[in-house]
Design a protein around this nucleic acid. Structure first.
Length: 413
DNA sequence: TCTGGGGTCCTAGGACCC
DNA sequence: TCTGGGGTCCTAGGACCC
């Protein structure tokens, strides 16, 4: 394996930093980063979770993902800001543009994380990292952590060490000292469940995981076990992917402000989501073969059903009808807080087999596309189905903040 | 727990085939 | 039928990431 120099650039408290930088630019005289503050969803709409927190807020024990309610209990004077995704997209794009001055080999891993291959860079890597960090701070107004390592995994682990505004390295000869003493849940890909499993067998640090027998971990936790064992040993060799890979699934979901307990309401929600996923599919010239509906009850129990179609589709009507059938098949009359429709086994249009049904499908596609165009021109609410009037349910449901084709998130490197 | 939304990958079991 | 062993496809659910 030839060694590389990989940077992982991670925006510190991204949403919050970007709100802070934006507010300062707009003339505000307080910097949200210096006071207890969070970016969080609307509690009234039951979207109230913490999306990002300032360092002063962190000192109160506030964690990303917890409810805004409990965050306020920990710190009553907490400032709560609603998210503005358009600002985040712009900030993210500005950062990526800035980074291209340092290397063409850039992988946008999420809205606030970038991998950059600096193996063939002009400057010594430390100097380059310093220039990137200071340049982003000066030109864009927010801070980043940069992790440097011989592969993506180690770079990513390094960027997480101490924050904010720091550069860390994690090369192979530093693993023992810098990574092995950390609690096992700090390792990428070890979440709540796996931590519990490992702890139950006396494994508490990354080092302890690294020293397990390879066959033992494989027979116990199968493929995911092998993956974390390799990560614990610093083994990872995926490329910094410069071209975006084809999306594998498209889905939208919504948590409603109220519980849904009638079929009539459920039908509207499903239709609203079908409109959105269908539109996104057609926008990308994709069809889907598998349609999946999942429901979450007011007690937070989730279940799902899916169906493989005989013919791939991008028709809102077909998606809706299938989703409704799946819903009827599985709904046990429990009251529901969250609905989701996801489309997978995607077929890119050039590969679709011609069939007898082609013409039949084509008519619907033309109708759907013309509605899409009107909505694009005159706004999403320019064409809505009458069923939604006064229903309290949005005619088009889904939180995609398009503008540009958004980078896929993946739990894999 | 007053707990969002958008993704990827993996596993296990059943159906069906030879 | 008290019935073997593989392979593939489909479905439901679970784990993780940001």
């Amino acid at each position: 394996m030839n060694d590389r120099i990989v940077f992982h650039i991670d925006v510190n408290s991204a949403y919050l930093s970007w709100e802070a930088a934006h507010n300062l630019q707009m003339g505000s005289n307080i910097d949200l980063r210096n006071v207890p503050s969070i970016v969080g969803g609307d509690q009234e709409k039951r979207h109230g979770i913490v999306l990002a927190k300032s360092i002063p807020a962190k000192k109160y024990g506030i964690k990303t993902g917890e409810s805004v309610y409990s965050a306020l209990e920990k710190c009553p004077e907490l400032i709560v800001i609603s998210p503005h995704y358009d600002i985040y997209m712009k900030a993210s794009k500005a950062m990526v543009d800035f980074l291209y001055d340092y290397s063409p080999l850039i992988q946008r891993y999420s809205i606030d994380e970038v991998f950059l291959d600096y193996t063939n860079g002009n400057l010594p890597y430390m100097e380059a990292a310093m220039k990137i960090k200071e340049g982003i701070k000066k030109e864009l107004g927010f801070t980043v952590n940069i992790g440097i390592g011989p592969n993506k995994l180690l770079a990513k682990m390094a960027s997480d060490f101490t924050k904010p505004d720091k550069i860390h390295t994690l090369f192979y000869d530093e693993i023992e000292k810098k990574m092995w003493p950390l609690p096992v849940e700090d390792l990428f890909m070890i979440g709540y469940r796996t931590k519990k499993k490992l702890n139950s067998r006396g494994i508490f640090t990354i080092g302890e995981l690294a020293h397990l027998d390879r066959d033992y971990i494989y027979s116990w936790l199968k493929k995911p076990g092998l993956l974390i064992w390799e990560y614990a040993n610093g083994i990872e060799n995926s490329d910094v992917k410069i071209s975006k890979s084809k999306v594998k699934s498209i889905g939208n979901s919504t948590t409603l402000p109220f519980d849904v307990s009638t079929k009539e309401e459920a039908m509207k929600v499903l239709l609203g989501i079908s409109e959105m996923v269908g539109m996104r599919l057609r926008e990308l010239n994709i069809k889907a073969e598998v349609i999946s509906v999942s429901l979450k009850t007011s007690e937070f129990f989730s279940y799902s059903h899916q169906k493989k179609l005989n013919i791939p589709t991008s028709s809102t009507n077909t998606i809706y009808k299938t989703a409704l059938a799946l819903f009827e098949e599985m709904w046990d009359n429990s009251s529901l807080r969250c609905f989701s429709i996801s489309l997978s086994s995607l077929v890119y249009d050039d590969f679709i087999q011609l069939s007898f049904f082609e013409n039949f499908n084509e008519k619907e596609l033309i109708l759907d596309k013309s509605i899409d165009n009107i909505r694009k021109k005159f706004g999403q609410s320019s064409v809505i189905r009458s069923a939604f009037l006064y229903s309290g349910i949005d005619p088009i449901i889904g939180g995609v903040v398009a503008e540009e084709n958004y980078p896929m998130m993946s739990s894999y490197l």
